[in-house]
Structure formats: structure tokens, C-alpha cells
Design a binder for these strands. Structure first.
Lengths: 205, 205
DNA sequence: ACCGCATGTGGACGGCGTCAACATTAGTGA
DNA sequence: TCACTAATGTTGACGCCGTCCACATGCGGT
């Protein structure tokens, strides 16, 4: 048996191949026929496992989201113990943001793919917890608990933070800022995170 | 002569048709053959005026940028005179941000198209001035002049502001926040702009 | 041993961007 | 005035894509 007629677990093989395409060329690089080619299977074989291309892309997006979460969590875990609770909480929020942006810039294609499927599907409860959003929420809750973020300013805080890092990533990824040097980019990110920290924090400092 | 062999000014007709497509269906809706069909000309006719599809899209993006600028400028112009200079400057920055987001949400397709061409072209000096970036820069300069924004925090401020409103727009346009109700969205935007204002402003308030 | 159903194949269709060869016309210089 | 050239538009083809259909294959239960 050179290659058996039935692949065994085509589905996950397709997802893996698609993931690689997405990593290298973004969501548009996930071409059904190319995915099939890479797995060594005929075009159309994928239709036994996915209704259409979008459904495959959705699965890939899900994996991408998970990887993003992991990258962010890793940064949190690597954080040294801070002296006081307030500094620690503030630092954690910064790290959440930095993890988001770093992943976006490092895994350009996968990041784009992860956000390419919200037009059709509306996130069918994909992130029960531990998603990027949950990490951000936890960080902000900490900030409240510790007394740095006033409860009156708590609602809308996640959207503000998310928007800031998401926009920063996209402007540098596919936007007009894609040409700025990494050093300048780093400085700008520091400035952005500092601005958010100041904007959320108590007036007293 | 029913329809003359030579169109007269095909180029601008193509751009107009493409603009309409972009408005209705975003950058992916700008299909060369469909554009030609709408103008009543054969496919391929466009190749006498544009090297390829991307070149047409680039022109469309440029127009979109201009419209964005105009929408923002209009909001600034409509602003009532404020009592003191500081309030006025702060208010202007808010309005710049609100104009950006409002346009993005109102002209979804065109906004997306305007930002869809930075991968190939690197903005060949398209915005000499009066672009969205210039409006933001002017607003921030005012903030410095008026004494609200410290010069030490001035560098990077435009990137921070831009990232915030850009991210906010995209999260609601093609991202996970596309399902939030307009009222909540409005509240979140107010919160975001307030956070940026606090983050940039002097500690004293 | 058999059969049904899941899984994979091959071919076709229409739509796309693009290229090359050809047709038509507008302007220009003699 | 008139022919020629360059600009502009057309036709047809190619290879790619996603998707649908009919058909082939073989695994698992009876």
C-alpha cells in the first residue's frame, strides 16, 4: 500500500496544511486546491470535511486565536514578581498589550487569518475563557481590585485597550505604518501603553 | 452613433464605477470585469488606463482617503466656539477621532478599500497635507500650544491616537465587535476618547 | 460474505485577472 | 486634404480559483 485510498485523518491534515499557508501568506493564501495539493489529495476531498472554504478558514482562525492567547499568557507567566500589587497589576496590563502586538507582528499571516472570519460567523462561543479577551478582562479586573482603575471607568475599558493594541498592530501590519523602523515602532508602542495606563489610572500619581 | 467606439474619458468612468463597487462591497467587490460591465465596455478596456487591478484600487483608495479627510474636516468646521482655548483644543481632538470612526462605520466598504492597498504601494506622497494624518497632527500640535499636552509626551502621540480610533473602527467593522448595539458602541467610543484625553493630558485636573 | 455509508476522485462549469493579436478612431504633419 | 501613427477598445485564450455532480473505493457492522 503506497498511499491508501482513505487518508485516515484528512481533516486535521487539511487544517495543518491550511495553517501553514495562513502563516506564510495570510488568509488569502489559504487556497482550497493548494491545501489539497499539499496533503496529496485531490481537490474536492476537503468537501467531505468542510462545507466550503470559509469553514476551513474558520477552523484556522480558531487555532490562530488560541495561539495568540498562548503567546499572551506566556508573557504573563514570565513576568517577575513585582513589589507592590498596584505596580504588578499595571505591569500585567502592559504585558497583555505587548503580547498582543508582538504576536500580531511576529505571526502576521496567522493574526490576519484569525480576524478574517467575523463577517460570516459570529464567534459561536469559541472562547469560553482564556481567549485574548478574557486575559484582558482579567487584567482590568485586577486593576480595579488593586484600586488603580476606578469602577466608574471600568465599563468600556476593555474595548478601549483592545482597540488601541489592535489598531496599532494593523496600522503596522497592513496599514500606512508598515514602513516604520522596528525601533521607532517599539518606542511608539511604549508610548501607547503608557498613554492607556495614564488614561485609565487614578488622577493621583 | 449609438455608442462611440471611444468612450471619451473611460478612466474616470472606471474609477467612478469602481468607487461605487467599493462603497457597496468593499475592496474585494472591485472586480475588474464587473467594473467594465457597469461602464458598458469590454473587459480589458481598463488595461489601457491601469496596469492592473491594484492600480485601479489604488486610485479608489486615494479617493476614499480624501473623503475621509473631508468628513473629518467637516466635523471640525461644525464645532461651536469654545470658551477657553484648552477646552477647544481638547474638543477638536475628540472630534478628529469621532470623525474618523463615524466615517469608517458609515462608509464601511470605502473605508476598508482606502486601507487595502498599503501592501504594494507605499503611499507615493499621496497626502501632501490635509490628509487624516495631518488633521490629527494639527490637533495634537494645538494641544501642545495650549499647554494641555506636554512636549515630552508629544512624540508618538499621533500613533497612539490613530491606533485607538483605527482599532476601534476595525473591531466594530470586521472584527468581533461587529455585533454590539450602536448605543453601546457610542458609549464605548466616548470612553475611548476620554481615556485618550486623560492619557495625554497634564496630571493636574 | 455482504451491503451501506462515509470518504476520496475526476470532470465540468462559471468567474476571475491577465496576455496577445486585432480593430477602430483621433490627431498630426505633409 | 489625406495618409500614417499612436492611442484606445475588442475578441479570444490561458490558467487559476471555488464549487457541483456523478462515480469509485473500501471500512464497519450484520
Amino acid at each position: 500500500m503506497t498511499t491508501p485510498y482513505h487518508h485516515g485523518n484528512l481533516r486535521s491534515a487539511l487544517v495543518d496544511a491550511g495553517l501553514e499557508l495562513a502563516r506564510a501568506k495570510g488568509p488569502d493564501g489559504v487556497v482550497l486546491r493548494e491545501v489539497a495539493r499539499r496533503v496529496g489529495v485531490s481537490h474536492n476531498a476537503a468537501y467531505r470535511h468542510f462545507a466550503d472554504r470559509d469553514e476551513l478558514l474558520l477552523e484556522i482562525a480558531d487555532r490562530g486565536m488560541t495561539e495568540l492567547s498562548r503567546a499572551m499568557q506566556a508573557r504573563l507567566d514570565a513576568l517577575p514578581d513585582e513589589l507592590d500589587a498596584v505596580s504588578r497589576a499595571r505591569r500585567r496590563l502592559q504585558e497583555v498589550g505587548r503580547g498582543y502586538v508582538d504576536f500580531a507582528l511576529a505571526e502576521e499571516g496567522l493574526f490576519a487569518a484569525a480576524f478574517s472570519c467575523f463577517a460570516e460567523k459570529v464567534a459561536d462561543g469559541s472562547d469560553p475563557e482564556s481567549g485574548p479577551y478574557e486575559l484582558l478582562t482579567a487584567a482590568l479586573d485586577d486593576l480595579v481590585e488593586v484600586g488603580y482603575l476606578d469602577t466608574s471607568r471600568r465599563p468600556g475599558a476593555e474595548v478601549a485597550c483592545w482597540a488601541a493594541v489592535h489598531g496599532f498592530s494593523l496600522l503596522h501590519l497592513e496599514g500606512p505604518l508598515r514602513v516604520v523602523a522596528p525601533a521607532d515602532r517599539e518606542a511608539a508602542l511604549t508610548g501607547l501603553l503608557d498613554t492607556m495606563d495614564r488614561g485609565l489610572g487614578r488622577p493621583v500619581r
